[in-house]
Design a protein around this nucleic acid. Structure first.
Lengths: 187, 187
DNA sequence: CTGCCTAAGGCAAAGAGTTTGCGTTTGGTG
DNA sequence: CACCAAACGCAAACTCTTTGCCTTAGGCAG
């Protein structure tokens, strides 16, 4: 239902853009909890029924918007070595995701997502970033792990704690996880 | 708002029990998506406003019920060795949690949970079970990891994949995770 | 370029769920 | 036993959601 095969151009695209923009504006103005479909519709200049028909309900709409905001907008930085690349990425990931708005986006993405497609997309974003880092390391001739291992040892613990135990998370924990997967010496 | 300091006995307790029971009945009869607050209220023999005032909304109520169902009802089995105890527990955990109803409970518990209290409770359940297993191993004289390590290396990957990538999960994966944390030889 | 065809949106009424004020019941407590 | 406040029931007001019907406007074939 989300990321639907809308007609690619014209009115459909305009409506989608305007609704997404309305959601972003209203979230920052009134806070996430104050949103309602009629409110978003009014700001976007459409009728509520349009939103209900396209997205089903508010949660799916928020899920759509959340996934977009979770998409990385830039390739991970190149610091010259696998261990620093991965550490920097993990620290930034934790920082972004563990903030109140980051957590809200993750929850939204997970929630309004009957088929799990949006959650899968989030996971793919992270895996993609890690793949870039590992590929770069391989090209340097470094000895790398594979993506799945890094997902299991770094992304999963970070995400688990963000979702289930938001307390006591800091950059040092992220660094420890990266050390754990590469070996203490940076391998 | 959930797990509130309700008056421990009398009517409040009866209402809570009857509402929880109504949720469980209706979920199994009509499916989770068909639930509404008025429906639950009718079955429970209370008025909708009672539910709204005690739980806030349907999601928080479902979160409450879900957490109860995620609570382990029995101590982890004793198979005589750490590696078999942990493997059996992980396999069962994956099996229960990755089923459609298990996933639904996890999602419900996470979703209707503004302050994260319910999610923390879920995590504590798993940590408690692992602690029992590790303590037993220590008493046997086995060389054990600590709970946090097992959470990071076993629970977190399982949960991450259940939530974000529900495909391709099987008992072998759970076994591999346990081997990873104990060492391939069972340590 | 023109004219169909259909997906998508607008509108408005009907339906359903949510919120709230007020009076009553009922545990807890001195 | 008497009091107090939490919790509940009731019902009205309100908001959100759903739905049928009509109009608009992309896309596409001729």
């Amino acid at each position: 239902m989300s990321r639907q095969m809308v007609r690619p151009g014209g009115r459909s695209a305009r409506v989608q853009a305007s609704v997404h923009a309305a959601v972003r504006e209203l979230v920052s103005e009134l806070g996430r909890d104050a949103l309602t479909v009629p409110l978003v519709a009014q700001r976007a200049g459409v009728t509520p029924s349009t939103i209900y028909r396209r997205w089903g309900d508010l949660r799916e709409l928020l899920s759509d918007v959340a996934v977009e905001r979770l998409r990385p907008d830039t390739a991970p930085g190149d610091h010259g070595a696998l261990s620093s690349d991965l550490t920097a990425w993990a620290e930034q990931f934790l920082d972004e995701m563990s903030s109140p708005t980051g957590r809200a986006h993750i929850r939204d993405a997970l929630l309004g997502d009957p088929d799990g497609g949006n959650a899968g997309r989030c996971s793919a974003y992270a895996a993609g970033q890690i793949d870039v880092i590992l590929t770069r390391a391989t090209e340097r001739g470094e000895n790398t792990s594979d993506v799945e291992t890094v997902v299991d040892h770094v992304v999963a613990p970070l995400m688990y704690r963000i979702l289930f135990r938001p307390d006591g998370l800091d950059a040092a924990y992220a660094r420890r996880l990266v050390e754990g997967v590469l070996g203490p010496a940076g391998r």
